[in-house]
Amino acid sequence: SIKEIEKEEIIKVLKEVNFNKKLASEILGIPLRTLYKRLKEYGI
């Protein structure tokens, strides 16, 4: 599903940037606030 793909992509990017959420949100092209929402939604 799209949610699974998105979750995997978020985890992959977070690992690449050593869990720097600000940098991860910039790489993913989403606002930091949205990233936090996704992390909560996906239980990351």
Rank of each mutant, 00 (worst) to 15 (best):
S1A: 13
S1Y: 03
S1I: 11
S1R: 04
S1V: 12
S1F: 04
S1W: 06
S1H: 13
I2Y: 06
I2C: 08
I2G: 13
I2Q: 14
I2S: 13
I2K: 08
I2N: 15
K3I: 11
K3T: 12
K3C: 07
K3E: 11
K3L: 11
E4L: 11
E4H: 10
E4P: 09
E4W: 06
E4T: 09
E4S: 08
E4Q: 12
E4I: 10
I5K: 14
I5S: 13
I5A: 15
I5F: 13
I5G: 11
I5R: 14
I5Q: 15
E6W: 07
E6I: 08
E6N: 11
E6C: 08
E6A: 11
K7Y: 11
K7N: 05
K7C: 07
K7T: 07
K7R: 13
E8D: 11
E8F: 13
E8P: 04
E8H: 12
E8T: 10
E8W: 14
E8A: 15
E9F: 15
E9C: 08
E9K: 15
E9Q: 15
E9N: 15
E9H: 14
I10Q: 01
I10M: 11
I10E: 01
I11Q: 06
I11W: 09
I11D: 03
I11M: 14
I11Y: 09
I11N: 04
I11G: 03
I11V: 10
I11H: 04
K12P: 01
K12N: 09
K12E: 05
K12D: 04
K12H: 07
V13E: 01
V13S: 02
V13K: 03
V13T: 08
V13A: 08
V13F: 03
V13H: 02
V13D: 00
L14M: 12
L14N: 00
L14G: 00
L14A: 01
L14Y: 05
K15D: 04
K15C: 09
K15V: 11
K15Q: 11
E16I: 12
E16K: 13
E16F: 13
E16G: 11
E16A: 15
V17M: 06
V17H: 06
V17Y: 06
V17W: 04
N18D: 09
N18I: 03
N18Q: 09
N18A: 10
F19H: 07
F19I: 01
F19W: 15
F19P: 02
F19Q: 05
F19Y: 14
F19L: 04
F19D: 05
F19R: 03
F19M: 07
N20S: 07
N20I: 04
N20E: 03
K21N: 08
K21C: 10
K21D: 03
K22D: 04
K22Y: 10
K22C: 07
K22W: 10
K22H: 10
K22F: 10
K22N: 06
K22R: 13
K22I: 12
K22E: 07
K22P: 06
L23Q: 09
L23E: 07
L23W: 07
L23S: 06
L23H: 07
L23K: 13
L23M: 12
L23D: 04
L23T: 06
A24Q: 00
A24L: 03
A24F: 01
A24R: 00
A24E: 00
A24V: 05
S25A: 15
S25E: 01
S25F: 02
S25W: 01
S25V: 04
E26C: 06
E26L: 14
E26I: 15
E26Q: 14
E26P: 02
E26D: 10
E26Y: 12
E26H: 11
I27T: 05
I27N: 03
I27M: 10
I27K: 11
I27L: 12
L28Y: 01
L28R: 01
L28M: 06
L28E: 00
L28Q: 00
L28W: 01
L28P: 00
G29R: 07
G29H: 06
G29S: 05
G29F: 03
G29E: 05
G29M: 07
I30Q: 01
I30M: 11
I30R: 01
I30W: 07
I30S: 01
I30F: 04
I30T: 02
P31C: 06
P31F: 03
P31S: 15
P31V: 03
P31H: 07
P31I: 03
P31D: 14
P31Y: 03
L32Y: 05
L32N: 01
L32E: 03
L32W: 05
L32H: 02
L32S: 02
L32F: 04
L32P: 04
R33W: 12
R33S: 13
R33Y: 11
R33E: 15
R33I: 10
R33P: 07
R33N: 11
R33F: 09
T34C: 07
T34S: 08
T34R: 06
T34K: 08
T34L: 14
L35W: 02
L35E: 00
L35C: 01
L35G: 00
L35S: 00
L35M: 04
L35Y: 01
L35H: 00
Y36H: 09
Y36T: 10
Y36G: 04
Y36R: 14
Y36P: 01
Y36C: 10
K37Y: 09
K37D: 14
K37F: 08
K37R: 13
K37N: 09
K37G: 05
K37W: 09
K37E: 15
K37C: 07
K37Q: 15
K37L: 14
R38E: 03
R38F: 15
R38D: 02
R38P: 01
R38I: 15
L39P: 00
L39G: 01
L39H: 01
L39C: 06
K40S: 09
K40M: 12
K40P: 02
K40N: 07
K40W: 13
E41D: 09
E41R: 06
E41T: 05
E41H: 06
E41P: 02
E41F: 08
E41V: 05
Y42G: 03
Y42Q: 03
Y42M: 13
Y42L: 15
Y42D: 03
Y42I: 09
Y42T: 03
Y42K: 02
G43V: 05
G43W: 04
I44H: 05
I44M: 09
I44L: 12
I44C: 06
I44G: 04
I44N: 04
I44R: 05
I44S: 04
